[in-house]
Design a protein around this nucleic acid. Structure first.
Lengths: 149, 149
DNA sequence: ATTAGTGCAAAGTATTTGCAACAGT
DNA sequence: ACTGTTGCAAATACTTTGCACTAAT
């Protein structure tokens, strides 16, 4: 899914370099596909291999990777930005289900939003290029817990 | 739409007081129904009538009003939280269309999301209580501008 | 040589908190 | 009196920036 050669290509097209630091940061996302990592999360992971890396570098790399649309920036309202690999190639989108009780974030595959995007584009003349959908509620586990007396 | 008597009721139920400061802050939202005000925005507006008010009070009030579900907290990714009056009573939801070029935020009325919520609830056993949907794209004006040579 | 990239420390911005004073019941 | 509320200042949390140094072409 992530092709380093193709990435290096995408970097050099815009005269960016795929430095060791940037590779290691990317690797962190590859090793944690299902997670939504914050800058601090990435910093912690990455320092295991590269203890001299700076937090500013992490922030700058995350911004760069978002600009290159390799990562997608997310916001779950916990005061920090989170990132995940942007699978633009795959046609199915996923939404995030955020549990108000335990804070966990689950993914939900769906492409009903495509329909909605089309409706909006037609009615509002807005040219939509991306969307972000968050559902807030209670996950199964937390529902079961609150059922107990 | 906003009934002060009903509000005072909702406050006192939980032994909160509808203080002058809180009323003035609420009034700011009533006077700017179509806007998405940040804490700083509210602070600026409110100081015209009440110059001695503190920014911390604004923050605390916004949090309280969100807890009481009188306001809804929004996030447009510009680094600050924004708020709008939460029209829970009205059945139609609206989504936000964020222009990537000029940054303006438009509203779009729709309730197709209800369908999606039902699907998710069934498939994932997640009990959904709220959602937030953002569409990113280019507004009509900015599209027209970029058409020009 | 030139230009991009890095680490560190400092600065910036948004938000929260501790606390003494205050207000309403 | 009691308890919630306020304003101020200080603290915190996340992120960005200035700068000298390094690495890669």
């Amino acid at each position: 899914m992530i092709d380093m050669a193709e990435l290096r290509q995408r970097f050099s097209e815009r005269q960016y370099k795929l430095t060791p630091q940037r590779q290691i940061i990317l690797q962190a996302f590859i090793d944690h596909q299902d997670k939504h990592l914050s800058a601090e999360d990435v910093y912690t992971i990455v320092r295991k291999q590269s203890p001299e890396i700076g937090l500013a570098t992490v922030y700058r790399t995350l911004e760069l990777l978002s600009d290159l649309e390799i990562l997608q920036k997310l916001d779950f309202g916990d005061g920090r930005s989170r990132y995940e690999i942007n699978e633009t190639n795959t046609p199915h989108h996923h939404h995030h289900l955020i549990c108000l009780s335990c804070g966990k974030v689950k993914e939900f595959e769906d492409d009903l939003l495509e329909t909605l995007e089309a409706v909006i584009a037609r009615k509002s003349r807005f040219k939509i290029v991306d969307h972000q959908v968050k559902f807030y509620g209670y996950c199964r586990e937390c529902q079961e817990e609150s059922d107990d007396p």
